[in-house]
């Protein structure tokens, strides 16, 4: 369901299988998966949200947790490819001013943050 593409030692792209819904227990699994894969230890992480169908409050909390963990080491977390519905949810929560939300292709963001 969740995939990590380690571009090099410091950079990674996190992506999702088709039509993933991060809700309820899946949100907990995502949080655990991030811990198991030490996602926060990279200096640049791009979350490719193109296959993200829906995310609930618990899923958003797991994204923010990751953001907060990475902020401690000044690592960079970018989220791209979000649907309009998810972008609107984040905007209503004003989390678009906290999280780094982009529209570019994940590989391009990785290249730009070499």
């Amino acid at each position: 369901m969740f995939r990590i593409n380690k571009v090099d030692e410091g950079r990674a792209i996190v992506s999702f299988d088709e039509e993933t819904r991060i809700t309820g227990k899946v949100s907990e699994s995502f949080r655990q998966w991030c811990d198991e894969n030490c996602v926060e230890s990279f200096s640049v992480v791009v979350i490719d949200g193109r296959n993200l169908d829906f995310i609930d409050s618990m899923g958003i909390a797991s994204l923010i947790r990751l953001y907060k963990l990475m902020s401690r080491t000044r690592a960079k977390l970018m989220i791209t490819g979000l649907s309009q519905d998810i972008s609107e949810i984040l905007s209503t929560l004003r989390l678009d001013s906290l999280l780094d939300i982009r529209e570019e292709d994940p590989s391009k963001l990785i290249e730009e943050n070499a």
Partner: peptide, 8 residues
């Protein structure tokens, strides 16, 4: 105001 819990 945005969500509660982020000092915003």
């Amino acid at each position: 105001n945005g969500a509660i819990g982020f000092g915003m």
